[in-house]
Nucleic acid binder design. Structure first.
Lengths: 155, 155
DNA sequence: CTTAATCGTTGACTTTATCAAGAGTTTAAG
DNA sequence: CTTAAACTCTTGATAAAGTCAACGATTAAG
C-alpha cells in the first residue's frame, strides 16, 4: 500500500496504516513509552522517577506491602526493589520494618515527609494522565481504565 | 485501609485497592511488561524478540520506512535501530537501500525470506494478543484498540 | 560558495534487566 | 527436637537497553 503522490504525510501518519499499528502489544508499548517519558519530566522537580514514585505510592497506600509484593505488583525483580527502597529510605521518605508475623519480610511504609511528597507527586502524575487522555471523553477514560485493568490483572 | 483479618488474599488482590492500581500510566506499564514477556516467549523459536519483530513487520509492510522513521514510530533512538537492522540484514531478512530521493536516508524493506518469517511471527504475536485479551469480548477488544490508538498517536 | 541542517553510524556512558548464590528465617517432615 | 526444604532480602556479575555527543556524507538555505 503506497502513499498517494502529491500528498504530504508525516512519518506517523504514513506508518499508521501498517499491520503493526493495530497490535495491542505495540500500542501499549508506545503508550507507556510516551507516558513514562512525560511522567518522568513532571516528577523530576521532586527528584522522583516513575519507578521510585510507584514504590512511594504503594508505601503510602496504607497496605503495608513487603518488598516481595512490590516486586510482583510492579513487574520487577526483587533485587531491583532493594536500591529503590534504599534511595527512598535514605531520603527519609519510607521505612523498612521487619514484619512481626514473618521476620524474613520487610514491610515498606511511608513516613510523614514521604506522604507529603507523595501528595505533590500524585498531582504531577494526575496532570500527566490528564494530558495523555485529553482526547478521550470522561466516559472513554473510565472505559480504558477498566479494560486495561482487566488485562493487566487477569488470572 | 487494612485487610480484614481472617481472609486470605494474594498479593495482587491486596494491592489492587491502592491508588496506583487506578493510574493509566501504571496499567499500561504492567500490561506491556506482561505482554512483551509473553510475546518474547512466543517469538523465541523464530529467533526474534519484540523489537526485531517490530522492525521486520514495518520492513514488510510495503511502506518502505527509513531508519529515522522506524526510530520515531517505535519510540527508539536512531542509534538503536542500527544494530537491529544489522542483525536482520545479516540474516537476510531485510535490506538497506539508499533512498533515491535523499541519499542520506536508507529505506528498509523485507526480503522474500523476511516476509516468510514475518508471516509465522505474526501468527505468534496474534496468539499472544488473543491470550492477553481472552477476558474481553470482541467488541471490548476493538474498543481497547481504538482508545489506545488514540492516546498513542495523539498530536 | 558557504553555512546550516539532516541521516546513519560509532563510541562512551548510564540505567535497567536477568540470574545465581548467600545469610537469616520460617515451615514441614521425620 | 532436628533436619531439610522453602522463602525473603541482599549482593554481585553479566547482559541488554537507553542516552547523548560527535563524525562523514548528503541535502537545503542564503
Amino acid at each position: 500500500m503506497a502513499t498517494r503522490p502529491g500528498t504530504t504525510m508525516n512519518t506517523i501518519d504514513r506508518l499508521l496504516s501498517s499491520e503493526l499499528a493495530g497490535e495491542i502489544e505495540f500500542l501499549t508499548a508506545r503508550t507507556r513509552s510516551l507516558g513514562s517519558a512525560r511522567a518522568n519530566m513532571l516528577l523530576e522537580p521532586l527528584d522522583l522517577k516513575v519507578r521510585s514514585y510507584s514504590v512511594l505510592s504503594l508505601a503510602c497506600s496504607g497496605l503495608a506491602p513487603t518488598q516481595r509484593e512490590l516486586a510482583e505488583f510492579l513487574s520487577l525483580d526483587p533485587s531491583q526493589i532493594v536500591p529503590l527502597v534504599d534511595q527512598l529510605e535514605g531520603r527519609g521518605l519510607v521505612e523498612r520494618t521487619a514484619d512481626p508475623n514473618d521476620r524474613r519480610s520487610k514491610v515498606i511504609t511511608g513516613t510523614k515527609s514521604g506522604e507529603q511528597l507523595y501528595t505533590k507527586a500524585r498531582e504531577a502524575t494526575a496532570e500527566g494522565e490528564a494530558v495523555a487522555m485529553a482526547k478521550l471523553s470522561k466516559a472513554e477514560q473510565e472505559t480504558l481504565r477498566d479494560l486495561l485493568s482487566r488485562i493487566a490483572f487477569r488470572d
